[in-house]
């Protein structure tokens, strides 16, 4: 009896949590009329911002993957002093307020900073550029890629890499032909998480670049300037685009054979 009571309560709680997530989204979708959606979709500001957001987030993820993936491998394979601290530093962007992260980045790239002065030599201002957006997105989202890829590499048996060495393969060749393919599922999943997280970033981005406008900032501006009625269709469109990309990339990564090392 007790067992089934417990089961029922667990079931009820699970349902409430799901409803809590799906409810607001669903009501937002329902209360947005087709005409509003259609009109908003034609708005070039909206189109441009969505395109910009996707583009910058994707490029950022791609560029950072070059550095993050070898770093993840290093974390998975080697023990070194202060490793726990390094691991803590990686997770730092996830726990600090993103507006604070934005302020930190702004200090780093503003015209008075070394980096800002340097880019000033080429009469380029980082603040307010897609580059600033990318930096802000990367700052808050790169831990997702690093942690996921690290777990993937940790699951690849060291014996397989050693076997490759005994067969004459160099460390680099082994990394690309054995370690990466076997950790691929985790790397790709980390890539998707980083991409999705970067795309939806608001707090850090708005501080370093109000313009050009990424969609989360655009939603905020529409809400401030015109109210809920105008902000809602943009939100619906952006959530839909995000979901489509998320599901699409997930299904691609799931189709990759899950190789257990």
């Amino acid at each position: 009896m007790k067992q089934s009571l417990f089961n029922n309560i667990t079931l009820l709680f699970s349902g409430l949590i799901i409803l809590f997530i799906v409810g607001p989204l669903l009501s937002m979708f329902i209360s947005t009329s087709g005409i509003d959606l259609f009109e908003t979709a034609k708005d070039t500001d909206v189109q441009d911002s969505i395109f910009l957001t996707l583009k910058v987030s994707f490029i950022t993820t791609f560029v950072f993957a070059f550095f993050a993936i070898p770093f993840s491998y290093f974390l998975a394979r080697y023990e070194f002093p202060l490793k726990k601290i390094v691991q803590g530093i990686i997770d730092l962007p996830v726990v600090i307020p993103h507006s604070a992260a934005g302020i930190a980045i702004l200090g780093f790239i503003s015209r008075d900073s070394t980096l800002g002065k340097f880019s000033g030599l080429f009469s380029f201002d980082i603040v307010g550029s897609p580059l600033a957006i990318g930096i802000a997105m990367a700052f808050v989202s790169v831990p997702f890629l690093i942690n996921s890829a690290r777990d993937g590499f940790a699951n690849v048996s060291v014996r397989l890499e050693k076997a490759a060495y005994t067969l004459g393969a160099s460390q680099i060749r082994t990394f690309f032909t054995i370690s990466i393919p076997l950790a691929w599922k985790n790397i790709l999943s980390g890539f998707i998480m980083m991409f999705a997280r970067g795309m939806s970033e608001f707090g850090a981005v708005i501080i370093v670049a109000y313009h050009p406008m990424v969609t989360p900032v655009l939603i905020y501006e529409y809400f401030g300037a015109y109210g809920l009625k105008y902000a809602r269709p943009v939100s619906v469109i952006f959530v839909t685009v995000s979901l489509v990309f998320f599901v699409l990339l997930r299904s691609i990564s799931d189709r990759k054979k899950n190789v257990e090392a």
């Binding site: 490759a164 067969l167 190789v259």
Partner: peptide, 29 residues
């Protein structure tokens, strides 16, 4: 270095590369 020794080792658990076919395992070296 391991790669320069010209010594072959067959592991007890075989250590075949699970993501490669038998042909590509054989061709790996």
């Amino acid at each position: 270095k391991i790669q320069k020794r010209n010594i072959g080792l067959v592991f007890q658990d075989y250590a075949l590369f699970p993501h490669l076919t038998v042909r590509n395992n054989l061709l790996f070296p």
